[in-house]
Every structure is written in structure tokens, then in C-alpha cells.
Design a protein around this nucleic acid. Structure first.
Length: 581
DNA sequence: GGAAGGTGCGCG
DNA sequence: AAAGCGCGCACCTTCC
């Protein structure tokens, strides 16, 4: 795992009819340029990685790394130009960073584009997008990539806080690698258990293709109670009218509002909605479409959310209902180590604001109990609702009422989110701990604000401007906390990935081949969701993995917040394997 | 027949 | 119709 400074970076891109690799030293000076046939890329990367462990620089991680992983080649580090570009373009730490070849700052370039998903181009055309690159994704020529890489390095080194930006960019790149690896390894999914749940909850699936038995049954009871034998329960408008005719004067068909009424139609209707959700979101069709060979392989989209959180595409990976969690099951002889962080966002808020009182309250496993102990509010339930209200910007109701009490007890933490809200309301931008900056307000938003200031502004103009200002304030208030929590989570994942890679492989007889060539013989990440990870591991390494997950959390805390005394306690569970129940 | 918007609900 | 942030997806309706 040594690295020599003469081969610190390799920029990969297209040139001529093949692929060219620019080898750079630690100062970014080019030492060598190689031309490779596409078919030789995997073997060359494997050898170069083993010899030099460089940071691989490429336009867009999924475009390159999915194919490499598929041929069994893993890399330890990369620099994702597209993701870094998005950070540097908006960050207030790099005000001079303007898109390449772009006369007017802010107008989109090749680098401002969604990630490659494999869907906009057939697999054989993976590296075959020469001239069409702009439409389908970021620039792909080696020279263009090298150019952009140097501009990004310059911008970071000139920045007011290059240390934080380097951390952010490295964490983002690690996340990009991990996202591809998560999809390649997949989440072990027990199809039999999933089907058992469907049969039990929904009832048997009729051969004719109609709704399953229990759903039909619930629907029939609703129609009877409403005296409306044909009403379509899936049509919000028709259902609403039918409810009104039956004297149920709801203003929506949401479950929380329906639950407030007493009528024989309510119970079966709530039942119908619950079953219908399971059927349409995660029913038999979902299983057929998304689970192959015992693995659920969604596409993860790092920084797919403005705050830097990950999004997902396909299969609703980030919305797997708790109801189905028992279908997530390790291969025989393997275990799933499932870890989640307790109250990540308020802990991050304590650290980034340097609020020692909130950090004290966060000592131990339950931050909300600590808030009660600090005397801010009487009960845990109130502590939770107040803290969420403070981070989301609640102004009314129980939550809004409690927030001022937090302000008295934790003035520094509350000042940070209140300042972020004020800045947003005034049209400004805010930044996370590591320097990801929120997008500026839209032209529509600014127009609305300036129109409200005109002498002839109507009352409607003014109230709309105020409402939009408050909406934006709640967005920026939450941005700083949610975004910094995402940074912590990326650091956690990245550190954990390194620790897992250091664990030994298992013997061929003990492998999990469905996890793919790179991960079949070792512990690997299998799922990630904001503040939760799952690691699929040979059973004999489960204890070490559990320990690694803990150590990675502690390391992430130190990496972001140095010596500031803040805990990130995890709940860690080790599952049984498919052989037990 | 498809795009766009609304509604509702799953996750954090 | 959430009060109070961020998403993705399915379904219905409207419009072209």
C-alpha cells in the first residue's frame, strides 16, 4: 500500500480511439502519458493500483468504476471531477471558481450534469461517448479532465479554508466509490421471507391478476360502509366525494386526518391504504423487478440531495419499509452487522456550534434524556419534538412552543440554526461545516422579494414574499445541520471501508459468490441510509466488523471536529444468518 | 399516448 | 392538512 510521489494521480479519459492515462506527480505535473486499448484497461488499472495506489481522477465515478469492479478491479482512492465541481462551483470558500470555458459564472457547463446511470447509454457504449459527452454526461477527454483537475486543485489551494474543502472532496470521492461498490455487492435479500410476508399480510395473490385477498376484503368493507359499491379507492378525488356523501367531512384522504373520525368506513379504509402501499411499493412486482440472485441492487446517488445527502434511483432503496426488514438476511455462514447513529443531527449541531452544554447533554446514548437532565424540558418526548422543531424551523404547535426553552439552555447551538434561517430569509447562502454551500435563491424568489418592496405592491405580493422568505429560512436552517450530518456520515463510511478492506479474506468454501468477484470473500458494505450502515460479513469476522464500525464513527468525529468532546454512539446489531430463524 | 402536476406515504 | 427539513415512487387527473 505504498505510494510514490511520482505517481500520485492518474487522470483517465478518452483520447483518439482509446483511453489515455495521464500520470501526475504529487505537484500535479505530468510525468507520463499512456494510451490503452479499452480491453486492457482493467488489467492495467489493477497492476498500477497494486504498484502505486494512486488517486484515480476521472470525470464521473460510476462511468468508470462500475466496469472496473465488474471485472474484479478495486481501487482505494479517487477524485470525482463532477462531484467536486459541484462543490467548488457553489462554495463560498472558492469564490473564484468559475466553470471551465464559461464566460458567465453560473451558466451550466459539461460539468454541471447528473451522474452517469448506465440507462442513458447501452452497456457496450460505456466509454464511447466522444462528441456526445455534453448531452449524456460530463466531459470525458483526458485533456479536458486534466484541465479541470488542475483548476480544482488551484481553487482549493487558494481557498480560505483548503483543509476543510480537501476533507469534503476526499469524503465525496470515497462516497462515490462506495456507492458503486454497494450496488455491485447488493443487499442480501431473502425472497422466500419477502413472499411469506406478502402472503401473510396481503393474502394470496389471485391467479387472475386481481388484488390479493385481504386487500379485496378491506376494499369491499369500505364500499359497504360508504354505501358506494363501485367507488375507486385509488382515486383521491372520487374517494373524497364518497367520504363526504357518507358524512365524513375530511379535507384530504391522508391517514392522519381519517384517523380523527369515527365511522365504520375508517378502519377498513386505513387497512386498505396500508395494504395497497405494500402491494404497489414492495409487492411481487417489486421483487421480480429489483431482486436478482438474492440481492437487491439499487443505484445510490451520492450528493443527489442539495444538502449532500445521498439519493437513490430505482427500487426505492431509501424507503424500504421496516415491515420488510426481516427479508434482509445474510447468506449462510455470514452475518449482517447493522449499525445506526443515535440522534446524529443534534450531535452534529452541538459540535459545529461548539455548544458545550448540548455536547454535555449528548454524552451517553440518549441525547434527549440529556436534554431533560439539563432542565430544558420536562420529558424525553418534549425534548425530541423541541429539538426537531429547532432544526426544522417549527413556529407553531407543541414544537414551536418548546423551542424557546432550548434557546435558553443551548444558546450557541440555537444561534447557529437561527442565524442560518435569517441568512436564508434575506436571500443569502449558508454553508456546512466542511464548506458545501447552499444554492442561491431562484430568480423567481428574488423577483418576489423585490416586488414586495415596491411602493405599489399588493397585500398578496407582500404575504407571498414573506411566506417564501420563511420557507427559504427553514431550508437554510436545516441545510447546515443536514448537510454536516451527511459529511460526518461520508467520513464514517470512508473510514469503515478502509477498515473492512484490511480484514482477511475467507477460504473459497466460505465465500458469498452472489456479492460479486471483489466482495465474495470478505466483509463488505451492503447498505447505507443517511445514518445507518449494514455490513455483510463472514460470521467469523462479525465481532471485528462491529468493532470497526464503532472505531470508524469515533474517527469520523475526530476528523471533522478534532478534539471537541462530542460522542457519536451507535446501536450495533449482529443478525443471525439464513440457516436460523 | 405521454408529460406534468397533485396527492399520499415510505424512509431519514 | 401537517405543525417543521430532505427525498423517491406509484397512482390519478389534466392537458396537449
Amino acid at each position: 500500500m505504498h505510494r510514490d510521489d511520482d505517481q500520485a494521480f492518474v487522470v483517465l479519459g478518452r483520447a483518439g480511439g482509446g483511453i489515455s492515462a495521464a500520470v501526475l506527480d504529487i505537484d500535479g505535473a505530468e510525468r507520463e502519458r499512456l494510451t490503452l486499448a479499452e480491453a486492457d484497461l482493467g488489467e492495467w488499472v489493477r497492476a498500477f493500483e497494486r504498484a502505486h495506489s494512486p488517486r484515480w481522477v476521472w470525470n464521473d465515478t460510476p462511468r468508470w468504476y462500475a466496469a472496473l469492479l465488474g471485472s474484479g478491479v478495486r481501487v482505494s482512492r479517487c477524485h470525482d471531477l463532477r462531484l467536486s465541481h459541484a462543490i467548488l462551483r457553489d462554495s463560498t470558500l472558492t469564490p473564484g471558481f468559475v466553470a471551465h470555458g464559461d464566460a458567465t459564472a453560473g451558466s451550466p457547463t459539461d460539468w454541471d450534469c447528473p451522474p452517469f446511470t448506465g440507462e442513458d447509454a447501452p452497456a457496450p457504449a460505456l466509454f464511447d461517448l466522444d462528441g456526445a459527452a455534453a448531452a449524456a454526461g460530463p466531459a470525458i477527454g483526458t485533456d479536458e479532465c486534466l484541465d479541470e483537475f488542475r483548476r480544482q486543485r488551484d481553487a482549493v489551494s487558494r481557498s480560505a479554508d483548503s483543509g476543510r474543502l480537501r476533507l469534503l472532496i476526499a469524503a465525496e470521492a470515497a462516497g462515490a466509490l462506495i456507492a458503486v461498490e454497494l450496488q455491485a455487492a447488493g443487499l442480501p435479500w431473502d425472497v422466500g421471507e419477502h413472499r411469506r410476508i406478502l402472503d401473510e399480510v396481503l393474502g394470496e395473490r389471485p391467479a387472475s391478476g386481481g388484488a390479493p385477498r385481504r386487500m379485496e376484503d378491506a376494499a369491499r368493507r369500505v364500499r359497504e360502509a360508504l354505501g358506494d359499491p363501485t367507488v375507486n379507492l385509488d382515486s383521491q378525488q372520487k374517494l373524497l366525494r364518497s367520504l363526504h356523501r357518507a358524512g365524513i367531512l375530511v379535507t384530504s384522504t391522508s391517514r392522519w386526518e381519517l384517523a380523527e373520525y369515527r365511522h365504520p368506513a375508517i378502519e377498513p379504509l386505513l387497512e386498505y391504504k396500508k395494504l395497497s402501499r405494500l402491494l404497489t411499493a414492495n409487492g411481487w412486482a417489486w421483487l421480480t423487478e429489483w431482486v436478482r440472485d438474492g440481492r437487491f441492487r439499487p443505484t445510490y446517488v451520492p450528493a443527489g440531495v442539495v444538502t449532500g445527502r445521498w439519493a437513490s434511483a430505482g427500487g426505492g432503496a431509501l424507503q424500504i419499509p421496516r415491515q420488510l426488514r426481516t427479508a434482509v438476511r445474510a447468506d449462510p455462514g455470514w452475518r449482517l452487522v447493522v449499525a445506526d447513529v443515535a440522534q446524529l443531527e443534534p450531535r452534529v449541531l452541538a459540535a459545529m456550534s461548539g455548544d458545550a452544554a448540548l455536547a454535555d447533554a449528548a454524552r451517553g446514548a440518549d441525547l434527549y434524556a440529556g436534554i431533560v437532565a439539563a432542565g430544558a424540558v420536562p420529558s424525553r418526548a418534549e425534548a425530541k419534538v423541541a429539538m426537531l422543531g429547532a432544526m426544522y424551523g417549527a413556529t407553531t404547535g407543541a414544537s414551536g412552543l418548546l423551542v424557546p426553552r432550548l434557546r435558553r439552555t443551548f444558546p450557541r447551538a440555537m444561534a447557529l440554526v437561527d442565524d442560518a434561517a435569517r441568512t436564508g430569509e434575506q436571500g443569502g447562502v449558508v454553508s456546512t461545516w466542511l464548506g458545501r454551500t447552499s444554492p442561491p435563491p431562484s430568480a423567481r424568489w428574488r423577483d418576489a422579494q423585490s416586488r414586495a418592496g415596491d411602493a405599489e405592491a399588493s397585500g398578496a405580493d407582500e404575504s407571498r414574499a414573506r411566506r417564501w422568505a420563511r420557507d427559504r429560512g427553514r431550508f437554510t436552517r436545516n441545510f447546515v445541520v443536514q448537510g454536516t450530518a451527511a459529511e460526518w456520515a461520508s467520513a464514517w463510511l470512508a473510514d469503515l471501508r478502509g477498515r473492512l478492506a484490511a480484514l482477511p479474506a475467507v477460504a473459497p468454501a466460505r465465500t458469498a459468490p452472489r456479492s460479486g468477484p471483489v466482495f465474495a470473500d470478505r466483509a463488505h458494505l451492503a447498505f447505507f441510509l443517511h445514518d445507518e450502515v449494514m455490513v455483510h460479513t463472514p460470521q467469523e469476522h462479525a465481532d471485528e466488523v462491529a468493532e470497526a464500525v464503532q472505531q470508524a464513527a469515533a474517527a469520523a468525529g475526530r476528523l471533522l471536529f478534532g478534539g471537541f468532546p462530542i460522542d457519536f454512539p451507535l446501536e450495533v446489531r449482529v443478525s443471525a444468518d439464513a440457516g436460523k430463524d
